Amino acid sequence: SAKLISLLIKENDIYQLMKDRIISTANGNPLFVEEIIRGIEERRLSADKDRLGNYPEMFADFQIPDTVQSIARARIDLLPVGLKEILYQASVLGKYIEMNLLQKITNLEVKILFEMMKKLQKHEFIERVEAEPQSQRYFAFTHSLIQEIAYNSLLFKTRRSLHNKIGMAIQEMYLSKLDEKVEELAYHFKNSDNKVKAVIYLNKAGDKAQFIYAFKNAINYYLDSIKILESTELKREQLTQLSEICNRLAFS
């Protein structure tokens, strides 16, 4: 931990002041060390911006949160509102962030969105990912913990609305190759209020899994579909669907 801290902290005064407290709090967890250092660095940059460069005085009473979740959440809370909103919306896409999809759900101009993503990258919440084809631009959360905290910060209703938007955007963007996207579509619509689409794509994902002998996955998709159907007021069409899914389940 001491070696990692010395590599990450550039200011010697801060290093000497904080080293023992960081080691004690992080308890050997490298992710915790990194998040603590990032929090300290953002505090230092903020102080430099305000021309308050007395580091020993500034960090003498600095309280290090006692969990990595707390310090990551505190770093997110320091973001300007606009950047925080983009981070939250991106979290619904998952660990990997496809820029074309993010642009669809944010309705921001591509240039503006890309500049905001570069700022989030500078804060080390996300990182650039090389992707094929080259025309596609991707980012990824630096750690799944950041994505999880951002996702859980959204209101339940907002999350479900964003999942539906993402599902509809995937349908529109990948109309000619939806078969490649059925698992993503099943996931997003399952977590939205669009029950009709959820059942359609959960069944398709189940059929696809069954075809490649991934029977456990197929069963899970079919059971999720049944659960959604059972939560609705069943009409003849839904009863037929339920019967068909049960038949598929029997052969999985």
Rank of each mutant, 00 (worst) to 15 (best):
L4E: 10
K19Y: 02
I126T: 13
I76V: 13
D61W: 06
I112S: 12
G82K: 15
T232L: 13
S70Q: 09
E109A: 15
D224R: 05
G82F: 15
M173V: 05
I14L: 06
N203T: 04
I37H: 01
L162W: 03
Y201S: 01
I14G: 01
E184V: 03
I126Y: 14
P56A: 07
F114R: 13
M99P: 09
S6P: 07
Q147L: 04
M168F: 10
E237K: 10
I64M: 06
A186Y: 01
E244V: 04
Q121H: 13
E57P: 05
Y88C: 12
I170W: 06
L17V: 10
E11D: 12
Y151E: 05
I22F: 02
K3T: 13
R44G: 04
L145Q: 07
F156I: 07
I105W: 11
K49N: 09
L178D: 06
M99C: 14
N152I: 01
S153A: 03
E124C: 14
L120H: 05
L17H: 01
S70C: 01
L185V: 03
N194E: 10
I40D: 00
E11P: 06
S153M: 07
A205T: 01
I146R: 01
K227Y: 06
Q147F: 05
L162Y: 00
L239T: 04
E35H: 10
R160C: 07
A90L: 13
I86Q: 07
N217M: 04
I23G: 09
S176R: 03
T67Q: 03
K49I: 09
L239H: 08
L8S: 09
Q147V: 02
F215V: 02
E180C: 02
R128G: 08
F156W: 14
Q69R: 09
L229R: 02
Q171V: 00
